[in-house]
Design a protein around this nucleic acid. Structure first.
Lengths: 192, 192
DNA sequence: CAGCTCACCCTAACACTGTTAGGGTTTATT
DNA sequence: AATAAACCCTAACAGTGTTAGGGTGAGCTG
C-alpha cells in the first residue's frame, strides 16, 4: 500500500474516532509514520483528503442502497428498503456521512444535464421508473425527477435528523421511517 | 447595548459573512472594540456563543413558520406554507441555519416527555392536529408524532439538500417542494 | 560510468486559532 | 476607608493548516 493510500486510510479511521472538527493532519501523519508536511507530496490540501473520503463514502452509500433494493417483492418495497439503507448508513457511519452531506455538491447544474451514475439520487430515480412501470402508469421524465428529489429529501431529512437533532432520542424510528416512506410513495401515485 | 449583546450581534454578522468554519473570536473582538480574551468575561467559550446564536435562530425560524401558517384556506395549506417557510429560511439565512441544524439537540429524550414549545417540531405537530380535526378523522397521539417526524424529515431534507448538494442547481424547487409536501400529506390520510 | 531529474521525506517557520494566567482600573457595597 | 466584583488588558500556551527550502535515493540518459 502506497503512502497516499495509507494517508487516506488513516484519515478515514481518525475521522470516525474524533470527528471532522478535530481531524488533524499532524495526527494523521503520526499514524502513517511521516511528518505532516510530507502529506503535501500526495495531496494539495486537507480539503483534498476530505474530498477523497467523500468520494469513497458516496460510492459505499450508493452500493448499500443498491443492494438493499435487490430482490424485493415490489418496486415500492425496493424504494423503501433503499431509503432504510440510506438512513442506516447515516447512523452507522455517522462521521463519514457528515462529511458526505456537509460539503458534497452535484456537478449537474440543470435538469437537462445527465444524472451522474453511482449517486444515491440515480438509484432513487431508477427505482421510481420501475415503480411506475410496475403500476402501469406513464409518467414524464420531469415528474420522475420531482418525485426523486422529494423522496430523497424525505430519506435524507430522516437521516440528518436522526444523527443531529434526535441523537439520543428513544423511539422506534425504523417503523416510523418505513411508514412515512410508504406514505410518500402512496401520495406520489395520486398527485401527478 | 451591553458588551455581551454586542458580541452576539457581531458574532452573528460575522457568521453570515464568513461562515461557521471561519468564525474567529479575534475578528469578533475587533468588531466589538475589545481584545479577544475579554470575550471570556461574557461567555465561557466559543461554543457558548454559538449556542446563543442557535437559540435565536430556532426562535426566528419557529416564528416564520407560525406566521406562514396563519390565515390559510385549510390546515393542509398551513402545513405546506409552514414547510415552504422552513425551506425559505434555510436558503436566506444559510449560515445561521447551518448552525441551527448541525449541532442542535432535543432535550426531550422519549415520546412520553412533553414537547418543548417554540420549536419547529411543535409547530408541525400542532398543525397536524388541526389537519385531522378538519378532516373529521380521529388519530392517536403516537401517530401524530410519527407523522410530524415524517413531515419534518421531508421539509428538513429539502432545506438541507437545497443548501448543500443542490446549491447552484437551477430548477423550480418551490413548485417541486409544494407538490412533494402535498404528496406526503395526502399519503398521511391513507396510511394510519 | 557520470550527470541529471524526480519522487519523497525532512526541519524550521509563518500566520492563524481557542484559551488561560495574571495584572490593572473602575464601580458599587459594606 | 476597605473590600469585592465587573471588566478590560498583555503575554503566552498549545494547537492548527500550510509554505520554504534542503537532503537523499532511485532510475533514466548522455
Amino acid at each position: 500500500m502506497g503512502t497516499r493510500d495509507k494517508i487516506l486510510t488513516q484519515a478515514t479511521a481518525h475521522l470516525k474516532e474524533v470527528g471532522l472538527a478535530r481531524l488533524s493532519l499532524r495526527q494523521i501523519a503520526v499514524s502513517v509514520g511521516i511528518k505532516a508536511p510530507s502529506i503535501y507530496e500526495h495531496f494539495r490540501s486537507k480539503e483534498e483528503i476530505i474530498d477523497a473520503i467523500r468520494e469513497n463514502a458516496a460510492q459505499s452509500l450508493t452500493l448499500q442502497m443498491t443492494e438493499a433494493a435487490l430482490a424485493r417483492e415490489s418496486p415500492e418495497d425496493s424504494l423503501i428498503q433503499a431509503g432504510v439503507a440510506y438512513v442506516l448508513y447515516a447512523i452507522t457511519e455517522q462521521e463519514t456521512f457528515q462529511v458526505f452531506f456537509q460539503l458534497m455538491r452535484t456537478k449537474r447544474r440543470t435538469l437537462t444535464e445527465k444524472v451522474s451514475e453511482d449517486s444515491p439520487y440515480s438509484v432513487i430515480s431508477g427505482l421510481f421508473v420501475e415503480y411506475f412501470k410496475d403500476r402501469g402508469k406513464t409518467i414524464s421524465q420531469e415528474k420522475i425527477e420531482e418525485l426523486s428529489y422529494g423522496y430523497w429529501s424525505l430519506i435524507h431529512g430522516a437521516a440528518v435528523l436522526r444523527t443531529t437533532f434526535l441523537k439520543g432520542f428513544k423511539a422506534d424510528f425504523e417503523q416510523a421511517d418505513t411508514n412515512n416512506f410508504h406514505r410518500f410513495l402512496l401520495g406520489s401515485l395520486e398527485v401527478i
